[in-house]
Design a protein around this nucleic acid. Structure first.
Length: 573
DNA sequence: GCCGTTTTCGGCCCGACTGTTTTCAGTCG
């Protein structure tokens, strides 16, 4: 059973307990456990065998026992019992915006509604507004919520949400009186997908900002609107929250709005221990006097710690590390000296070797590895052995043109079904670096897929394993892999694991980056550019690395050319 | 439900907006 499955069951239990009106704390405990397991960098199965479940934040003895039951029997008695008591459609109703556990329970108990479809019928027939403390408006909201739910297409990839947020912020920044404007929420934490956009503006007056926000061309509908907070839905169906704050409260507001929820809860608990109450407005002493925090760092400083980079704010140990003053110096885009995966017209890229080289140079890189596909990737027009000489000539020509950029000869070689590679070792040895990946047979089972990758990791000519899980965000789950075995092997062999910066991939996913960093695995942040513009995606790859606590030292393409090549040569090239 | 050099019991973050209400519950983040 995979972590996501355990997380889903716990989350369902939380929903069902909430519908039953049970203690909110108990509900929260299950929600927290679900979150924690969903973000776990280790296999929960392995953790169980090692007897380390209670080391997972939010997992105590009771929940650890439940996880064991789930993994041994494939079922959880509490879950089964709740499922027998509450119709599944009632739990589904929680997906409807503005329907929470109380409303769902009342619909079920008082109207006999047991599905979203029945809820819609009840609303259309006016039965909901007849209930006490319900009204026509609430009923209309529920109907609207059902429509939104049916249109909703899930979470938005970071690479798309990022540009949408910046387009809106660009306009808001020009409103007179605006001092600062920034993204917050999961977007600022650079999660691989975001559920909605959170924007924060500091301004002398809120009204003009809100007025401008309402009139943005992206707005399809204003969902709610108050003096300091407005929620809209864009034409693409993305929800955007805007909060406007006084200039002097920027620090607390940005901290609050960035989250994560778990990070904030922990931080506010800490504030309480220090005799403060922390909100988005200020740190408040017990006598009611406020300490304003114009900058985010002020908030952390008052609580006795250093500023925590947003990418780390998931309550995964960053607060403890910040209190000790031991946060890592995370890798930054400016640390990258090269890119180790790029495609050209020799396979499925849009530009020539020369054009890619120029684009890399103009983005401040000192080296770029040309990695066209090998022939096994037939759909991408992969290279045959005979093509390599011609490509090498182009690479040599590009090198002759620059004194400040090295164009390296590489390949993205296909890992075949049996774990062997498309090219013999003799060919691979002639290249500067070899990147290996699999594009087919991702669904052939955990054991087989893991073995294929392990074989490639152990090949001394292979320097980098590209997009290891093969996931395509929002389209395809990653392969079922024994990631722990893969990372252990990579650590032992010195093979680098790629963090593919393509916004659809961001693969290795952040939770495994964290584990890779713990194990001392070498990482490579690569654009996988098929077009010169794709080189800009490196930024998202860096963000993913940062979310996994990676420092420049972990990332081979922050190293200068000499050191990077000497590592590659030590691998057998 | 979890968690702890204040505690093994008694805490567990804080506020905006909405709707149906004359003071607050529900939802959301």
């Amino acid at each position: 059973m995979r972590n996501q499955e355990v997380a889903r069951i716990f989350s369902e239990i939380a929903d069902m307990l909430a519908i039953q009106g049970q203690d909110q704390r108990r509900v929260l405990a299950y929600e927290r456990a679900a979150d924690s397991i969903g973000q776990l960098e280790r296999d929960v199965v392995d953790m169980t065998h090692e007897g380390k479940l209670t080391q997972i934040p939010g997992i105590g003895v009771t929940l650890a026992t439940k996880i064991e039951e789930l993994l041994t029997t494939g079922k959880l008695s509490l879950h089964e019992r709740l499922k027998a008591e509450i119709p599944p459609g009632v739990v589904e109703m929680l997906q409807v915006p503005d329907v929470g556990p109380r409303t769902a329970a009342r619909m079920w108990k008082e109207l006999g509604v047991t599905s979203v479809d029945e809820l819609e019928k009840a609303a259309q027939s006016g039965r909901i507004q007849e209930l006490s403390r319900m009204g026509a408006r609430k009923e209309a909201r529920i109907l609207e919520g059902i429509q939104i739910l049916r249109r909703r297409s899930g979470r938005t990839p970071l690479g798309i949400a990022w540009y949408q947020a910046y387009d809106m912020l660009e306009v808001l920044r020009r409103v007179p009186g605006v001092r600062q404007a920034a993204p917050a929420g999961s977007l600022r934490r650079m999660r691989d997908t975001v559920g909605d956009l959170d924007l924060l503006v500091a301004a002398e007056e809120a009204e003009p900002v809100m007025a401008c926000f309402h009139q943005l061309p992206q707005v399809a509908e204003v969902v709610q609107s108050g003096p300091t907070k407005t929620t809209i839905r864009t034409r693409q169906g993305l929800q955007v929250d805007l909060r406007v704050m006084e200039v002097g409260r920027w620090g607390t507001a940005l901290q609050y709005l960035t989250g994560s929820q778990a990070h904030n809860v922990h931080l506010r608990g800490l504030a309480k221990d220090c005799g403060y109450s922390l909100s988005e407005y200020a740190l408040k002493r017990e006598d009611g006097t406020e300490i304003l925090c114009p900058e985010e760092a002020d908030v952390y400083r008052h609580l006795g710690m250093v500023w925590v980079p947003p990418e780390l704010r998931e309550d995964r140990g960053e607060i403890e590390a910040a209190l000790r003053g031991e946060l890592p110096r995370l890798v930054e885009r400016a640390d990258l000296k090269g890119d180790l995966q790029s495609h050209t017209t020799w396979s499925d890229g849009n530009q020539s070797v020369g054009e890619m080289a120029e684009a890399a140079r103009s983005r401040g890189l000192c080296y770029i590895l040309i990695t066209d596909h090998s022939y096994g990737m037939g759909i991408a027009g992969g290279l045959r052995e005979a093509d390599l000489a011609g490509q090498r000539a182009e690479i040599a020509a590009a090198n002759a043109r620059y004194h400040d950029l090295a164009v390296l000869a590489g390949i993205e070689v296909e890992i075949r079904a049996d774990g062997t590679l498309d090219f013999p070792d003799s060919v691979l040895a002639s290249l500067d670096l070899v990147v290996a990946s699999l594009h087919t047979g991702l669904r052939t089972g955990r054991e087989r897929t893991t073995q294929r990758i392990l074989a490639a990791i152990r090949n001394p000519h292979v320097d980098v394993i590209a997009h290891p899980t093969g996931r395509l965000i929002g389209q395809r789950e990653g392969a079922d892999l024994d990631m722990e075995a893969i990372l252990q092997a990579a650590a032992q062999e010195g093979t680098a694991i790629e963090i593919n910066a393509y916004p659809d991939r961001l693969d290795l996913p952040d939770v495994y980056v964290r584990r890779a960093v713990e194990l001392g695995v070498k990482l490579a942040i690569n654009s996988d550019a098929h077009d010169v513009r794709d080189l800009d995606h490196l930024f998202f790859g860096v963000a993913t690395a940062r979310r996994g606590w990676a420092t420049p030292e972990h990332v081979v393409n922050t190293w200068d050319l000499e050191r990077m090549l000497s590592w590659a040569r030590s691998r057998g090239n």
